[in-house]
Structure formats: C-alpha cells, structure tokens
C-alpha cells in the first residue's frame, strides 16, 4: 500500500514501496505522467523518483488532505497494462579506472569500507565477480533505465534492466567524500550515477563519463533546450571505452561538435517486466543499428 506523508505544508511525499524494482518505478512514472497531464494550477513541482514520488503544491489554493485524496483517486485510475514510455536510447561512453576518479578515491580511502582495495575491486568482490573486468562487463552488458533525476541538476539514477538476481549492489562510502570529480561514474545501492558537477558524494567510484550531462552554457547541440541531458525514462547503455576514445570525445566536447548517439524509442513497461533480457538485447541492437 502506498504511504502518503506531509513534507511540511508545501510537499506531499508518496512512498509506493520500500524496495526498488522496475515495476514500482514504472508505476511512479505512470502516476506522475497522468498528474502532469492534468496541468493543475495549484501544483508547482511533480517529482517522480525511484520507488516513490513527491509533489510540491500551493497550500493557499489546495488543502494537503484534498490533494492526498486526489492522488489516491488518480492512482486507482492508472493502469500499468497499457503504460507506454516514449524516451531515448543513449550510448554513454565511460572510461573505467581513470586517473581522476582514482586520485579521488585514494584521497578518501579512510572513509571507505575497505581501504586496501579500489572501489571497483571491492564491489567486484562483494558481488561475486572474479575480476574487475568481469564487473565492468556486468555493468556494460545490459542497459539501464533512468529511474530518477535529482540530487543536483541532471544527475541520473540508473537502474539496470536485468532480473533481481543479476542486479549489482554496492554500499555507499562509510562517510561521504567532500570531493568527487565532475562526470564521475559511481555506484551506490542498486544505482549507477554520473555526477554532473564536482562536489560531495558517497557512491563507489568506478570511472568517468567522457561527455557532460550538465552544461550551463548550452554549447553542445544536446543541451540546446535544457541545461541537463538525462530525462526520466531514458535508457542508458554504459559503454567501456579506451583512453584514446576518451581523449577524442573530450576534444569534440571542447570544439562543441560532440553529440550523443541516441535513438528515439516508445516501449511498453510490460515488455520490460515480462522479459528484461529480451528487451535489453533488442534495445542494444536498435541503438547501434
């Protein structure tokens, strides 16, 4: 049963489930999509998240309890059977074990569960991978659903589209770092993320994205409409690249010519839930065709 909670007098927080699953994420997407379509003037922000969602409203025009009743009604009317998502497949190049995040993780070793290993070595071991290469393969073999945006502008929480038993899990740092490089690729809980800007962070550091996901000056084509690139519902494929390709992409970014490889897609949530592996294989074929 969803849990409805007041976030002070301006927010309603709705927890759909305590644990993460593709199903509950799709549910949050479907409810917030329908709410958005209503264009209610007394609602200021609609924030879908991983297994919950949040609404910021104007309590001068709607009582929080009236809003909760409305959300309950709306949830009843949302069916997952025919829920379709229109989004993008995106190729996201990552340089694993790069020098910049390596320097950061070494600097904060005293805040880590296992000061003797690197983050990649540690997560490979606790997830039963025989090597860091095997872990990288696990991360890059199957695509991720962008299940939530936030923390700072544009940060995508990404949840791999594989059955539960194949999910990779990692604890967060014992104490968060005060520094994380811009574009760092991290992993925490069951989520992969890219840090849009330099700052604090507690996720395990595995590598660095070659291209930006936040650009305040909107120089690149992909940022013409928004400063932030990721959108909830996007499907990201993290691809392991060489230092050579990394440098080449960095140069294209500098020159303003870089553009993400993307394909538009409309898919049924049910198709993902019924057979995530078949869906993932199909997605990868379409992305690189």
């Amino acid at each position: 049963m969803p849990r409805y909670e007041y976030g002070g007098d301006e927010f309603i927080f709705v927890e759909l489930a305590e644990e993460m699953s593709l199903e509950v994420n799709f549910q949050a997407m479907a409810i917030t999509k329908k709410l958005r379509e209503e264009n209610a003037a007394d609602i200021l922000d609609i924030c879908p998240s991983n297994a919950s969602y949040m609404v910021r409203f104007n309590p001068d025009s709607i009582h929080p309890d009236a809003l909760i009743s409305k959300l309950k009604e709306l949830e009843k009317s949302v069916s997952m059977d025919d829920f379709e998502i229109t989004s993008r497949l995106v190729d996201v190049p990552i340089l694993f074990e790069d020098p910049w995040t390596h320097e950061a993780l070494i600097r904060f070793r005293d805040r880590h569960q296992d000061p003797e290993s690197t983050d990649l070595e540690y997560v490979a071991r606790i997830n039963g991978f025989e090597s860091t290469d095997a872990l990288i393969k696990g991360i890059t073999d199957y695509p991720y659903l962008v299940s939530m945006i936030g923390f700072v502008p544009g940060l995508p929480w990404c949840y791999q589209m594989v059955p539960r038993e194949k999910q990779i899990e990692a604890p967060k740092y014992v104490r968060p770092r005060t520094f994380t490089p811009e574009r760092a690729f991290g992993f925490g809980g069951a989520f992969a993320v890219i840090y849009p800007v330099q700052g604090a962070g507690g996720y395990q550091l595995f590598g660095i994205a070659a291209a930006p996901i936040f650009e305040k000056d909107s120089k690149l084509v992909d940022f013409k409409e928004d400063m932030t690139f990721p959108r909830q519902g996007d499907i990201f494929r993290y691809r392991s690249i060489t230092r050579e390709e990394y440098d080449s992409i960095r140069q294209q970014v500098e020159e303003g010519t870089f553009r993400y490889v993307t394909k538009d897609i409309t898919f049924k949530a049910q198709d993902v839930l019924e057979n995530p592996k078949a869906f993932s294989d199909d997605v990868l074929r379409r992305l690189y065709s």
Partner: peptide, 18 residues
C-alpha cells in the same frame, strides 16, 4: 530493502522536500 544501501539510515533514493 533491496536497492537502499547497507546503512540503517539509507532508503531507496527518494525526493527531499525543502
């Protein structure tokens, strides 16, 4: 819960009201 992380203060990442 699955996906939350191991610290007892962790939850599956969610929105923070102001």
């Amino acid at each position: 819960p699955f996906g939350a992380g191991s610290n007892p203060s962790n939850v599956v990442d969610l929105g923070y009201p102001i």
